[in-house]
Amino acid sequence: MAIGVKVMKRPSDEVSYIRATLKGMALTFKHMFQARVTMEYPEAKSTDDWRIATRWRGTHRMMTDEQGRSKCVACGLCPQVCPANCIKLVPGEDEKGHRYPLIYEIDEFRCVFCGYCQEVCPEEAIHVGVHYENAEYSRDRFVYDLERLQAQTHPVSTLWDPADPRGQ
């Protein structure tokens, strides 16, 4: 038995690719005049209506005094409060009798970025930073020593403010 083939006859204006192309291009070109919702990340890091929250908690920064020494007095509260146990601190005394950290190291791999260290610090020395670009070529570079913590320049976190819970 011969196979019967039914040929559908559609109106040419319905099946024309020209029409579909124009429709698609219209949508594309329409976006050129709309507000931009993305950012070209490595070149642009913030836009007018979006930037990283000031209460962001990223890699640490140690604040220094006018003489460039760290403000830390090695009181031992941050290693005590740290839930991840990532802060190593050995206190010492300088020739003037000031207490200061001989060793201050933060293992950023272990850190859970809770910000308790900043919250507990009585000298406002250690801070979590508004910073997220931490790539390194080796793992051991993720243990930040005192020199490295002092050399950081990024802004520091405001933490969560109960008076301004939504960070506005």
């Binding site: 007095v73 090695a74 009181c75 509260l77 000031h98 207490r99 009585p122 000298e123």
Partner: peptide, 8 residues
């Protein structure tokens, strides 16, 4: 000066 005091 509790942060630097040994008695703290």
């Amino acid at each position: 000066d509790c942060p630097i005091c040994d008695q703290a």
